[in-house]
Write a protein that binds this DNA or RNA. Structure first.
Lengths: 269, 269
DNA sequence: CAGTGGTCTAGACCACGCT
DNA sequence: GCGTGGTCTAGACCACTGT
């Protein structure tokens, strides 16, 4: 095989031609072991020090090889424990029914995607704060910039696995003094639509814009994202009677364990 | 802080306390300069050697900081030339109106996102092929596996910039011999809904599932994606009278220049 | 405690893009 | 030729996870 000369190159001391960098060749070899099943999903790959011995390179070179695999989402690292082949995660599907008051919600057999709403395994870490409206937010709410809004920041987890970061805003006027402004009532039964309804606000339309990008480091840490996994971003705007009653400037989902589902009814086509 | 003794120990050897790693602090500072506009989009950031001088750290530390920004998709590097703040691309917004027959479509002033449908600057590279239904496709169309389908593969470009890869399927029975089966008629005026309507098929519902992931190498090349940019994936299923009449197993969008918009009407909430 | 990965240094030489 | 980033070495010490 052509691999023989590659193996020989590992044994050389320094001169290795850079036709293919060594860290790439090492990454290729480790990737082969993982995809071929020699290192099963969820198992530890050899430690950095044993890899330096096996390939006879400096530790920095091994780390670069592992960086490649991390960027591909193939492995994930835990400080002090080791580096694992990435296990396959269950996918959380978020469909239009997440805005319904209450309904039967079954998993999708074909993909294994599941909805966890109201299942009792969903925990919410909430943080409420009063903030002044930025010009962008003020325009969406049709108020003066600086008007006080209620900011609601959430980290939602399922089975202890973080699944969603949310930053949402409400006009303080419409929620102040109501149970909706109480952070201890999280998670909201029925979601934000039901909560607004309890205040007499009838939601008429929700608009969401979906984007994707690589996470910031903070997001990657909060969502425990391995490197190489992007995030799905949904920006939500909730309307009642043509007025904007809620804005979620960013709902951040880990793309390796979430997908969004939408329906476009006939009268829109 | 309780960490003071620890911090003191660091100061013996290194000026900066490691409460936050040096490379992350440097990444934060560079990110600030880029997002604040001190380094405009498309401009070169300082070279690695000048950054080692400015922050007084080893070159490896500077490179790690830049790796952070690259993983976030904030900068891109060209060997021998330098590292750039990633230029902002015009964003193509795809809303529900893309399935409407014909309507006024304006840009969104707040984000600069635009729709290019029917604007004449959209080119389509089409490839049609007859294929046997896989078990998954057969189940969706409610036919026997192996039933012949028309496969439609598209690369859509706007102003010569590739914007979308599509793979869609139709039952050959319903389209054979019709203008819809003619690859020379791309791009389809009014989209696939209008085309189906011209065959007497009235679309009643469209369902889309949106995901994100890093691109395969082939996708990255076809869409001319720089490293660190994920793709948005939409899987579409088109219904008429409860029957599935079209399936797009993957519409692949470059996440740095596309976003998807959906509406959830009141009767769904 | 031992073993893992995380951070950082101070060098070296190579490959690429420009002028 | 010069300045850029790409690759690599050989060490050091820190921080986290286990026993």
């Amino acid at each position: 095989m052509a691999d023989e000369s590659t193996a020989d190159r590992y044994r050389e001391r320094v001169p290795a031609p850079h036709r293919q960098p060594r860290y790439r060749a090492i990454a290729d070899e480790l990737r082969r072991r993982i995809t071929a099943g020699a290192i099963p999903a969820g198992a530890l790959i050899p430690s950095e020090s044993s890899l330096t011995a096996e390939f006879r390179v400096a530790r920095g070179t091994i780390r670069e090889a592992i960086n490649v695999l991390r960027a591909e989402g193939l492995v994930m690292t835990e400080h002090g424990r080791g580096t694992y082949a990435r296990p396959n995660l269950p996918v959380r599907r978020l469909g239009p029914e997440r805005y319904m008051s209450q309904r039967q919600q079954d998993g999708d057999e074909t993909t294994g995607a599941r909805s966890f709403r109201n299942s009792g395994v969903e925990q919410v870490n909430a943080e409420y704060q009063e903030v002044a409206a930025t010009p962008e937010l003020a325009e969406m709410f049709e108020v003066e910039p600086g008007t006080v809004l209620l900011q609601r920041r959430l980290l939602t987890s399922v089975y202890g696995v973080p699944q969603q970061l949310t930053t949402a805003y409400y006009l303080l006027d419409t929620v102040a003094g109501t149970p909706v402004a109480d952070p201890n009532r999280e998670p909201w039964p029925g979601g934000h639509v039901a909560q607004l309804q309890s205040l007499g606000i009838l939601v008429t339309k929700i608009r969401e814009v979906v984007q994707a990008r690589m996470p910031t480091i903070d997001e990657a840490e909060a969502l425990r994202l391995p490197a190489g996994v992007p995030v799905l971003i949904a920006n939500r705007r909730t309307y009642a009677d043509g007025r904007t009653v809620e804005v979620a400037t960013s709902m951040v989902f880990p793309a390796d364990r979430a997908e969004l589902e939408y329906e476009i009814p006939a009268d829109l086509t």
